[in-house]
Amino acid sequence: MSYQLTINGTSHELDVEGDMPLLWALRDELHLTGTKFGCGVAACGACTVQVDGVAVRSCSCPVEAADGAIITTIEGLGGPGGAMTTLQEAWTAHQVPQCGYCQSGMLMAVTALLAENPDPSDEDIDKGVSNVCRCGSYPRVRAAIRSVAQAIATQDATQDPTQAGATEVGEATSAEEM
């Protein structure tokens, strides 16, 4: 059976079993390895991608359920030429990642959260971002989200802050002498 997926703007015809998880179609069929395998049971969020704008744990989403969908992975989050989104810039400014393995999923989950709720409360963040980071980057994840949310609050509402090329006001930094 063949499935039609648009991934990061490119259309792919995939001849795989319908119950193959999207994660393994991305990683082992298309060699898009930015999306990570963590648990296989939708418990950790390392494999989070966006399917039609919604954050989805791709290890538990069969390819057939994504047939015809528009999919964004970490490789497609930034703009052309490697431009980073405001959120990715905040991630860099706050030096969020440690080992970094969970961060693709973390960024995809937070991007989806902010698209839906540009100024999330702490509770919204706790509920919306249940990804596991074994290194414990959580305090910095929260700080980076806060800095972007503040940037959104102070900028022109017509600009979409989750897209590359947005203004760079989210550059709050927790690091001294950076």
Partner: peptide, 30 residues
């Protein structure tokens, strides 16, 4: 004594960091 940004961060923010599990080469079996 100064907080220099880490060299490994950009690749961990844009998904390009290649871990052992991400290795691919012609003829690779899983």
């Amino acid at each position: 004594g100064t907080s220099k940004p880490r060299f490994d961060i950009p690749g961990k923010v844009n998904g390009s960091a290649t871990y052992g599990i991400d290795i691919h080469m012609p003829g690779l079996k899983i």
